[in-house]
Design a protein around this nucleic acid. Sequence first.
DNA 1: CAATTGATCCTCT
DNA 2: GAGGATCAATTGA
Length: 217
Amino acid sequence: MNAAPEPVTEPVRRQDLAVDPVVAARSLLGTVLTSTTPEGEVAVRLVEVEAYRGGDDPASHCYRGRTSRNEVMWGPAGHLYVYFVYGMHFCANVVCLTDGVPGAVLLRAGEVVAGHDLARERRRTARRDADLARGPARLTTVLGLEREHNGVDLTDPEAPVRLLTGDPVPDERVRTGPRVGVATAMELPWRFWTDGSPAVSTYRRGTRRHRIKLTRD
DNA sequence: CAATTGATCCTCT
DNA sequence: GAGGATCAATTGA
């Protein structure tokens, strides 16, 4: 096995995440999220993220105030916010800003850089390697992230999930656009991705599927 | 290819 | 009770 050398990385500092989610999102491209469970370790290099602000962002879980679900988003930066969607998937965010001010970056896609075999086991339906963590719910699946990981401090060297600096992505490789699956605030280019990565998820506009209510049947 | 839909359950109204 | 920061399978061109 002629494995590529491990990238020289160190933990991302909390102070670098205690900033506006739009700034944090840009800086998270190229960082490496690594998770250790009883099954083993899997690491992913982030190639697609989205910023969510608290109070003034109608697409944010915190738009309508503090609840038990979004509690972690109101806490200090550098923690993991995991939530359950659509009755079957988990999505993961990195919390930003400071204690008391909500904000987070949704982790939408990554490239598996360690633990490839375990990643494959967890995502048997993936056709190509690039599909292993292509999409927010696929990313959590590959890393084995579930409800119990909500609130984990990613800057703690002892934590089961950690965020490492990885290789910075230069500006000329960063692209931006509207967020995926969001039906409001379409004008905000708060989605960031690494140009050329095959693991970037395909854009889908937010739909209001129950928008049309049939009058009768 | 693109568009559509079923699966499935937690959260907030 | 409604609907969602989704995925995978299926349908039709």
